[in-house]
C-alpha cells in the first residue's frame, strides 16, 4: 500500500515546528511503527534526519510510544497503543497525519518525542504506599476480595502514556491521577494514606501546568487501557473529603 504521511517536525522545544510530507510504501501486516521504521531507513539512506518518535516494548505495555494519528492519540483503534496498531486498518492511498502529544506540561523534545517527566513528579508527590523494605506482614494476613483486587488492578493497568492529557481539551491529567489514587485507595494497604495522597497528587498536577477537569471524558475514549472515568469520581470524593480534614495533609 502507498501512503502519504504528514509528519510534525520540530528540532527542539524552542523551535516552532512544521509539517512535512513523505511518501511511503507499506504492507498491511506491518505495525504502524514498523511503517515509520521503513520511512526512517529510507531517510537515513538519503542522509536525512529520521523522524524521531518514542517507543520501546512495542507490545502496548511500557507506555513509551506517544503520537497523535489523524487527530487521535494512539490512532483510530479503541484500546490500542500506537505500537499495537497495524497497517491493515488503513487503506492504499490514505493520507495520515502524525503529531506529538500536545500539552503545556509535555514540552516537545524533538519531532514526536515529548517530555513527560511531569508524571514522575506527580507520582513522587504521593503515588505510593509508605512501607519500607522488610517491614511487610505475610501476604495472606489481610484477605482482599477477588472483586476488590480486580478493581484495583483495572486502575493499576494505566501505562502512564499521557494520551488522556493529549485527548483533553484542557490538557488535564485527571484520569492518570485518578487511576493511581483508585488503585492504591481501593486496597486496605493503601487506604490509610488515601486522602493525603489525593490532595498532594492533585496539588502537584496543578503545579505542573495541567488543566482542570471539566468532565468532557475524551480521556476515557482515547485511553489505550480503557481506564474508566469512574476513577475520577472516586478521586473527587477522596479530594473533597481531604479538603475538609486539614490535619490529613
Amino acid at each position: 500500500m502507498k501512503l502519504t504521511l504528514k509528519v510534525w517536525r520540530q528540532k527542539n522545544a524552542k523551535d516552532k515546528g512544521h509539517f512535512e510530507t513523505y511518501q511511503v510504501t507499506a504492507n498491511e501486516h506491518m505495525s504502524f511503527l514498523e511503517m515509520l521504521d521503513v520511512l526512517n531507513e529510507s531517510l537515513i539512506s538519503e542522509k536525512k534526519d529520521p523522524v524521531y518518535f518514542d517507543h520501546d516494548c512495542r507490545e502496548g505495555i511500557c507506555g513509551t510510544c506517544s503520537m497523535v494519528i489523524n487527530g487521535q492519540p494512539h490512532g483510530p483503534m479503541q484500546g490500542t497503543t500506537a505500537c499495537q496498531l497495524h497497517m491493515r486498518h488503513f487503506k492504499d492511498g490514505n493520507t495520515i497525519t502524525i503529531e506529538p502529544f500536545r500539552a503545556k506540561a509535555f514540552p516537545v523534545v524533538k519531532d514526536l518525542v515529548v517530555d513527560r517527566s511531569a508524571f514522575d513528579r506527580i507520582m513522587q508527590a504521593g503515588g505510593y504506599i509508605s512501607v519500607d523494605t522488610g517491614q511487610a506482614v505475610d501476604g495472606n494476613s489481610i484477605p482482599i476480595g477477588k472483586e476488590t483486587a480486580a478493581k484495583a488492578f483495572d486502575a493499576a493497568a494505566c501505562i502512564g502514556c499521557g494520551a488522556c492529557v493529549a485527548a483533553c481539551p484542557n490538557a488535564s491529567a485527571m484520569l492518570f491521577v485518578s487511576a493511581k489514587v483508585s488503585h492504591l485507595g481501593l486496597l486496605p494497604q493503601g487506604k490509610v494514606e488515601a486522602k493525603r495522597r489525593a490532595l498532594n497528587m492533585v496539588h502537584q498536577m496543578d503545579e505542573e501546568g495541567f488543566g482542570m477537569c471539566s468532565n468532557v471524558t475524551a480521556c476515557e475514549a482515547e485511553c489505550p487501557k480503557e481506564i474508566s472515568v469512574d476513577n475520577i469520581a472516586r478521586l473527587n470524593r477522596e479530594y473533597i473529603g481531604a479538603a475538609f480534614t486539614a490535619d490529613e495533609k
Partner: peptide, 14 residues
C-alpha cells in the same frame, strides 16, 4: 511476595 502486597501490587486473588 509480602513486600509487594504491602506496596499495593494487586495480585490475583481467590
Amino acid at each position: 511476595i509480602d513486600q509487594c502486597v504491602a506496596q499495593g501490587v494487586p495480585f490475583a486473588r481467590e
